[in-house]
Simulated scan of single mutants.
Amino acid sequence: MSDTVEDKLKNYRTAPFDARFPNTNQTRNCFQNYLDFHRCNKALSAKDQDVSPCVWYQRVYKSLCPVSWVAKWDEQIETGSFPGKI
């Protein structure tokens, strides 16, 4: 089994099982990974560190979330009306 983040990203196919979201409905999982991606980017960018570990969250939310949701959330972030705390 791969141990490093780079190996996991290279072997990534689809979102793995997340015990926080055991049900079939993956809406909350989608939204949480979207938030985690943006929080990760914000935190690492503020410290002038490499943001490549955040790519994991991006790949997960892109495989779970409908494109229309992501587009709407991106637009809301730009306008300052996004409901989540980033």
Rank of each mutant, 00 (worst) to 15 (best):
D3S: 13
V70I: 15
V70T: 12
V55I: 09
Y61L: 10
P83E: 04
Y57K: 10
S68Y: 01
E78Y: 02
I77L: 12
A43L: 15
C54M: 09
V60H: 03
C40T: 13
C40I: 10
L35W: 03
Q26R: 12
P66D: 12
S52M: 13
Y34F: 13
C54V: 12
D50Q: 13
T27L: 03
V67P: 00
C30E: 06
L44E: 05
S52D: 12
H38M: 03
Q49H: 12
L9H: 07
S81G: 10
T4H: 07
N11W: 03
A43F: 15
Q49V: 10
W69H: 01
K47P: 01
N41R: 14
K10I: 09
F37Y: 15
Y61C: 11
R59G: 06
A15T: 12
F17N: 09
Q26M: 10
R28P: 00
A15F: 04
P53H: 05
A71M: 12
N41Q: 15
T14S: 10
C40E: 08
R20C: 03
C40A: 13
Q76F: 03
E78D: 09
Q26A: 04
G84I: 07
P83R: 06
Q26L: 06
S45H: 09
K62C: 02
W73P: 04
G80P: 01
A46I: 01
W73I: 06
W69E: 06
V55T: 15
I77W: 04
Y57T: 07
T24P: 01
P83H: 03
K8F: 04
E6K: 10
I77A: 04
S63W: 05
Q32P: 00
P16C: 11
S81N: 14
Q76Y: 04
A19E: 12
V70A: 02
I77F: 01
G84W: 10
S81D: 11
S81Y: 08
L9T: 08
W56G: 08
F21N: 06
V51D: 05
C40F: 07
V51R: 09
L9E: 08
S63M: 06
N33E: 13
D48W: 01
F37K: 04
N25G: 07
P83Y: 00
M1A: 15
G84R: 03
T4M: 01
D18I: 03
L9A: 07
S45L: 14
A71N: 15
F37I: 03
N41H: 08
W69Q: 05
V5R: 09
P83G: 01
K42Y: 10
P83C: 01
N11H: 04
N29C: 11
Q32L: 03
L64P: 00
V70K: 01
L44N: 06
P16R: 11
F17R: 15
F17C: 09
I86Q: 11
C30A: 05
N25H: 09
I86P: 00
E6L: 06
F31A: 00
T79E: 05
T14Y: 14
R28I: 02
E78P: 02
S45E: 15
K72R: 14
C40M: 11
Q58H: 08
E78V: 05
T24A: 05
Q32V: 06
Y34K: 03
W56Y: 14
P53G: 05
F37P: 00
K72Q: 13
D74P: 05
Y57V: 05
D3W: 15
E75L: 12
K72N: 11
F21Y: 08
K8C: 07
